[in-house]
């Protein structure tokens, strides 16, 4: 039936795209564990992803912590449950908001930059030049970025967790009149290893997804400036969607009842 043809064609195109992405990811990961590794490039990517993302991730985390305390107070005050605010802030930040918001911010900053850089290298034949100089582009371009993404995102999220909780603390102490010692005691007593660990695992997965999407769309870009622009947009959009999808599945794995 003609009406089913476009549906079938779209589905096959989708499956082909998933297959290409899976092969790209497998090839990239294989080069992450197969020597030699370009340590200088890995270091440069770690600084790019970790150090230079600190301001944007820090600002996102502190304001998220602050608004979380404020919103929780307006809601919980109706049930005289204001004392639960430290617990809500620390759980929300470590389990969800820290990794997800840091992931989205880094996807916008780093994923776009990676797709643009590698895409420009593709359309200006720099990737072909790498190949002719007997240097595997996956080892030289993709593996250092994947390694940096997977290792630096948990560190960024760890810092985001601390800054986010501090944001909630500042608002609770100076605006809502909480006792600092009690607030801190409630926070530390309530938070569990699993809360922080799940957030860090999410961060590592998000780091992988962001760098994978940046590299994949950049590597496969074509058609000059317009193609590089499209690759940049696709990298950010696909990384953001995958972050939200994988966030659910990792939460399901960690906290399944």
């Amino acid at each position: 039936m003609p009406i089913l043809q476009p549906i079938g064609r779209t589905f096959l195109t989708f499956l082909a795209a998933v297959g290409r992405l899976s092969l790209f990811a497998a090839n990239g990961l294989a080069h992450c564990i197969r020597p030699p590794l370009y340590l200088r490039l890995i270091g440069r990517q770690m600084i790019d992803i970790g150090y230079y993302s600190l301001p944007v991730v820090g600002l996102t985390a502190i304001f998220t912590g602050m608004v979380l305390a404020l919103q929780s107070y307006t809601g919980f005050a109706r049930f005289a449950a204001e004392s639960a605010i430290p617990n809500v802030v620390v759980i929300s930040i470590t389990r969800e908001l820290g990794p997800v918001l840091a992931g989205l911010m880094v996807a916008g900053r780093v994923g776009a930059a990676m797709a643009a850089e590698i895409g420009t290298m593709r359309v200006t034949e720099q990737i072909d030049a790498l190949d002719t100089l007997a240097t595997n582009p996956f080892k030289y371009l993709v593996a250092p970025r994947l390694i940096a993404g997977i290792t630096m995102m948990p560190l960024l999220v760890c810092i985001a967790d601390i800054i986010g909780v501090f944001g909630g603390y500042v608002v609770s102490i100076y605006k809502l009149g909480f006792n600092p010692a009690i607030y801190l005691k409630n926070t530390i007593d309530f938070v569990e290893f699993e809360d922080v660990a799940s957030g860090l695992v999410k961060a590592a997965v998000f780091g992988f997804l962001i760098t994978l999407m940046g590299c994949y769309h950049g590597y496969n870009s074509k058609g000059g400036a317009q193609g590089v622009g499209a690759a940049t947009t696709n990298a950010v959009v696909s990384a953001s969607i995958l972050i939200l999808c994988f966030n659910y599945f990792i939460t399901e794995i960690f906290f399944a009842v």
Partner: peptide, 20 residues
């Protein structure tokens, strides 16, 4: 393939120099 590629040098149309 790397062994064979080491026999080659190539001048690309727009030089394809690495910007970084």
């Amino acid at each position: 393939r790397d062994r064979v590629l080491r026999k080659f040098g190539m001048l690309f149309q727009n030089a394809a120099l690495f910007d970084s």
